[in-house]
């Protein structure tokens, strides 16, 4: 590619890369892409995992490379870093809406001191009631908890606050 790569354009392309387990939210909106640097037509993307043991990290890394390559960027480097570590406040408003529409309760914003209280009455993504209980803080993936709604009697998952 000869023309100069523009950062806005790269961010736009990266919006195509979705979370492999929640394919409605992009890695940008999830907040796991922490920096994009373009120097001499080389694109360096910094990423950080939601949970340290997230098994999807390698897929996401490859997806970033694949999408940028598809758009003609030949020189891509992806670094996994904890310099700016992930917490659930990093999910954008657009991302929170996507989670909700997918049927997952978005994590409540918090002051980085998560305690059990904020898990107890999560708003049900199906009917909007907060008459809900935490069934277990451990769900089908490391980043989800399981809740039950006593109003609509549906069981639902939440993207866990961290």
């Amino acid at each position: 590619m000869n023309e100069v790569i523009n950062k806005e354009q790269v961010l736009d392309w990266l919006d195509e890369v979705k979370d492999p387990e929640i394919p409605v939210i992009s890695l940008i909106d999830l907040g796991v892409i922490t920096n994009v640097d373009i120097t001499d037509n080389k694109v360096t993307v910094d990423m950080t995992p939601t949970f340290v043991g997230c098994p999807a990290m390698d897929y996401m890394k490859q997806d970033v490379v694949d999408v940028l390559t598809k758009h003609g960027v030949d020189n891509v480097e992806v670094n996994i870093s904890f310099k700016e570590s992930w917490n659930s406040n990093k999910i954008t408003d657009k991302g929170r809406k996507a989670l909700h529409d997918f049927g997952l309760a978005p994590p409540p914003k918090h002051n980085l001191q998560v305690d059990i209280d904020i898990l107890e009455h999560v708003e049900c993504p199906n009917c909007g009631s907060d008459n809900t209980i935490l069934k277990t803080p451990f769900g089908p993936t490391a980043c989800r908890s399981i809740h039950h709604c006593d109003s609509c009697h549906e069981t639902f998952e939440q993207f866990k606050p961290l």
């Binding site: 949970f51 340290v52 043991g53 997230c54 098994p55 904890f82 069934k135 277990t136 803080p137 451990f138 769900g139 089908p140 490391a142 399981i146």
Partner: peptide, 20 residues
């Protein structure tokens, strides 16, 4: 079932943390 998943999730976290 919930405890099965809890111990499995904590296993995943701990192995992932050791890897880091």
């Amino acid at each position: 079932l919930e405890e099965d998943i809890a111990f499995s999730s904590m296993a995943q976290d701990k192995v992932g943390q050791s890897h880091a």
